[in-house]
């Protein structure tokens, strides 16, 4: 079974009298346990595609299937459930709730899921340690650097071990050392748990970790490279 299937996705934005094709008949197929990088210059449609895959945005046409289930025709409530239980997100721009500490942000999704407090604490402490934020658990986002905030977001995305993780430029605010550490963590999770990763990026280092590299331009898929063979 494939983890993600997109068939002929189109999405057009209108700005004034100009039409912008954010997705232009984009089709992809990602198998379970895939580790895929979406690479495109800024404005290439990465975020739009991730939002469509993640059930945040409905494409104008085409189909989206997640784990064998078609999702582009689901209602709002079902989509919310899907996002809550099946997918981990690292968003491009805004990730953390300002009034919650690092640990509370990491626990947020689990709390909404209804995971008991003891279990939540254990998992969140472990994952924060894994992303190198030990000792910063009680800091609010405003008391952390951009890179630290980004790692909290990553920790939240992977803490409940979703089958699919969508990360939109997760290393944008990180130095090369932390970027590497983060990517190694992703690779590790991919190996041990079979978690599928779809990572949008224009960072060459990140692409180096991917098993598969999908290149986009102006909303179209222009290249699909299997990097494992190489």
């Amino acid at each position: 079974m494939t983890a993600v299937t997109c068939i002929e996705l189109c999405k057009t934005y209108r700005q004034g009298d100009q039409e912008i094709k954010a997705l232009d008949h984009a089709s992809i197929d990602i198998g379970e346990g895939g580790f895929v990088c979406l690479s495109a210059p800024s404005g290439g449609g990465k975020t739009t595609l991730l939002n469509a895959i993640g059930g945040l945005d409905i494409p104008d046409s085409g189909e989206v299937w997640i784990a064998g289930k078609r999702i582009d025709n689901l209602g709002k409530g079902e989509l919310a459930n899907l996002r809550l239980h099946k997918i981990g997100y690292v968003f491009q721009a805004y990730n953390l709730v300002p009034v919650l500490s690092a640990r509370e942000n990491v626990e947020f999704v689990m709390q909404v899921q209804g995971v008991p407090a003891g279990q939540r604490a254990e998992k969140s402490m472990a994952i924060l340690k894994e992303v190198g934020l030990q000792g910063l658990e009680d800091r609010r986002p405003a008391e952390m650097s951009g890179g630290q905030q980004q790692r909290v977001a990553v920790a939240r995305a992977i803490v409940s071990r979703p089958a699919l993780v969508l990360a939109d430029e997760p290393t944008a605010n990180l130095d090369s050392k932390t970027s590497d550490a983060l990517m190694e963590l992703f690779v590790q999770l991919n190996k041990t748990h079979g978690t599928t990763f779809v990572i949008a990026t224009h960072d060459q280092r990140v692409m180096g970790y991917a098993k598969r590299l999908i290149k986009m331009l102006d909303g179209r898929i222009v290249d699909d490279i299997d990097q494992q063979a190489a």
């Binding site: 459930n81 809550l84 805004y94 909404v112």
Partner: peptide
């Protein structure tokens, strides 16, 4: 933004 974020993460309206 944070309200939108919470909804994006799966919190119901």
């Amino acid at each position: 933004r944070e309200i939108g974020l919470m909804m994006a993460l799966g919190m119901r309206p």
